[in-house]
């Protein structure tokens, strides 16, 4: 059937030409603003996902990375630099870098991956309709997240009285979170809670030492870029101090932290990459609803528990997505 062959050939040619037409011909440019370093799980996942979506760095995508190396005061300047090079989209994760970029531009689309309260901080008008140049994926809403860590500590140490929170003193979002969640936790679980603050990465040593000196029975470590740079620094220090601690992210537990409970930042990064892909293909962030996290991680490191001489109760183990032995 010559006619059918000819038709098929025509169809295939058409398909190929449309496929070619769909693959972007111009190079897309992404600007990335990282408060510490542009690496770690979230960044790797994002880069992977964007590649899966058809954007290969070096071929049709360039990513300009700006790293604040934990120095938040540098964020506005780096944001301005990024905006000057006019990328197609700027990617930032948490509230402070996003805020810095938003202050620098109201035109270039910004996609975030871990902002707790984008509406409350004025980044978007509403989750359903962001209305501006910013959209992304949320993190824990203030009121949640940290309190859940106290719940875990109570489950783990039913007798504990004195608990510390390791948190950045510079992070407005964290401060807001603490002001809401600490009263809830202390009231519900009867903890005496000390907030041990730090401002820069160099403060971490002192903060852990202070926690030990205060004699806290457990630590809740609030998520912060500084805590994760380098990624095993805090778990190592805390383990040395012999304090059981509950972290926010998977890699902290993998680096020797006792328990990690939080939002799956890898999943958030994938969603972020998907949103970036849509922006690169012409979608307007104003009409792209802010997505909320759906996957949570709960990781227990039994090796650390053993080192600390702790027995993890079955109620916690039953919740664990991953148990490190």
């Amino acid at each position: 059937m010559g006619r059918h062959t000819a038709l098929a050939t025509l169809l295939i040619t058409l398909l190929i030409s449309t496929a070619e037409a769909q693959t972007p011909t111009k190079t897309a440019r992404i600007g990335k603003l990282c408060p510490a370093k542009c690496d770690g799980l979230a960044h790797i996942t994002f880069d992977d996902e964007i590649r899966k979506l058809g954007w290969v760095e070096g071929r049709d995508l360039t990513i300009e990375r700006k790293e604040a190396e934990g120095r938040f005061e540098r964020l506005p300047d780096l944001a301005a630099q990024l905006v000057r090079s006019r990328p197609d989209v700027i990617v930032a994760s948490s509230t402070r870098p996003v805020q810095a970029v938003k202050n620098a531009t109201s035109e270039i689309p910004i996609v975030f991956a871990a902002v707790g309260d984008p509406v409350g901080t004025g980044l978007v008008q509403s989750l359903a309709r962001p209305g501006g140049n910013v959209t992304g994926v949320t993190y824990f809403v203030p009121g949640f997240g940290l309190a859940k860590k106290f719940e875990i500590i109570r489950e783990l140490l039913p007798q504990a009285q004195h608990v510390g929170v390791l948190a950045s003193a510079d992070n407005d979002a964290t401060r807001q979170r603490l002001s809401i969640e600490i009263p809830i936790a202390s009231q519900r679980y009867g903890f005496r809670i000390d907030v041990i603050g730090f401002r820069v990465a160099e403060d971490i040593d002192g903060a852990v030492a202070k926690a030990k000196m205060l004699g806290v029975e457990a630590l809740a470590v609030a998520a912060d870029p500084i805590v994760n740079t380098p990624w095993n620094r805090v778990p190592d220090l805390v383990a040395q101090a012999g304090i059981p601690a509950v972290y926010d992210q998977r890699d902290s537990a993998q680096a020797g932290g006792l328990i990690a409970y939080g939002i799956d930042i890898a999943e958030n990064a994938r969603t972020q990459a998907r949103l970036v892909d849509r922006v690169l293909r012409g979608a307007s962030p104003a009409k792209m609803p802010v997505e909320q996290p759906t996957r949570y991680i709960f990781i227990v490191n039994l090796k650390t528990a053993k080192a600390l001489g702790l027995t993890v109760p079955p109620s916690l183990l039953s919740q664990a997505d991953e148990v490190i032995e």
């Binding site: 759906t294 996957r295 709960f298 079955p314 109620s315 039953s318 919740q319 664990a320 997505d321």
Partner: peptide
Amino acid sequence: DERRRIDALRLLRQVP
């Protein structure tokens, strides 16, 4: 009912 609590927690983990 501690057992039922654990069942409930496990269910949360199983059904996202």
